[in-house]
Design a protein around this nucleic acid. Structure first.
Length: 279
DNA sequence: AATTGTACCTGTCAGC
DNA sequence: TGCTGACAGGTACAAT
């Protein structure tokens, strides 16, 4: 579910409502969520701590708790964080609850239970969660055109596979990759190294534009995604190819097709998207 | 090194 | 209506 625009939107809602709050008590209903510490640690580590900051790195959410404690959360496919009043009914699949000092609750809901949590010192938790291996933030200056050119030219993979690789650039998932490649006019099966320079330049700019548009629309609510206050995003109404199999391309009216590329369901307008290089 | 398959889970939807 | 199988936005790991 959540890719960069969704996680960014969740983070922004949480910054507004939980930063500065103290965690009074904690309930953990699904201990397997916790990847690097026993249940007791989760409770003992969090209780009494102030939420100093909530930030995002790639698709991860980072909570700084107290002076030096960190909690790193990845929502994977169906994770949701919800800021609730205590009297609001509990959704099925609620796996943890933080009781905050303003009598509100932060609840984690995850139907498929793929979400992961790491806790420890702020620095150590980031290492354990694997954040060191992540590539640059696509909306930061680190994601420069020269960097992107180099990342593509040194790869034998398809462009779709490369864009999904979080060590090359973070934050893109299936939806935003398909949308970016459509808008850049590139067939997802094109070998990354064989894209013409001009196409690489266009794709680089397009990735930023699509992600920024996703953030501006507060994310894509195709299925489960809602922000920290339970609100849907609206980018699903602006999708060109993702989820539009058998519908007409908005530009040329060609029927959008879906095929498996890089092991993922991939949506393509074969008229608007050129296949560069390779077979 | 890169790709493919598998695993982690539950819900939904298409097809029979 | 009910059953079954395919499939779902992510990532890690093993095998090839």
């Amino acid at each position: 579910m959540p890719e960069l625009p969704e996680v960014e939107t969740i983070k922004n809602t949480l910054v507004d409502c939980v930063v500065g709050r103290v965690i009074i008590s904690v309930e953990l209903n699904y201990p397997a969520l916790l990847k690097n510490a026993p249940v007791d640690d989760f409770t003992k580590t969090l209780e009494g701590k102030r939420i100093v900051s909530v930030t995002r790195r790639g698709k991860y959410l980072l909570f700084q708790l107290g002076e030096k404690t960190g909690l790193i959360l990845h929502l994977r496919m169906t994770g949701q964080l919800r800021y609730n009043r205590p009297q609001e009914p509990f959704l099925k699949h609620t796996h943890f609850v933080w009781h905050l000092d303003n009598h509100m609750q932060l609840r984690y809901v995850d139907v498929r239970k793929f979400g992961t949590i790491f806790i420890g010192s702020f620095i150590e938790a980031q290492k354990t969660a694997g954040l060191e291996r992540l590539g640059p933030e696509p909306l930061s200056p680190c994601f420069s055109l020269p960097y992107f050119v180099k990342a593509l030219s040194s790869s034998k993979r398809t462009i779709k596979s490369l864009l999904l690789d979080q060590t090359k650039v973070v934050g893109l998932g299936n939806i935003y990759v398909d949308e970016s490649l459509f808008r850049a006019g590139i067939h997802p099966q094109s070998p990354a190294a064989e894209l013409p320079d001009e196409q690489v330049r266009i794709l680089h700019a397009t990735i930023r534009q699509v992600l920024q548009a996703g953030i501006d629309r507060r994310g894509t609510s195709m299925n489960d995604y809602v922000d920290g206050l339970g609100r849907q995003g609206t980018f699903q109404f602006e999708l060109s190819v993702y989820g539009r199999e058998k519908e007409q391309c908005r530009l040329c009216h060609t029927i959008i097709v879906r095929e498996v590329i890089a092991g993922r369901s991939t949506h393509i307008c074969t008229h608007c998207q050129n296949r560069y290089g390779g077979s």
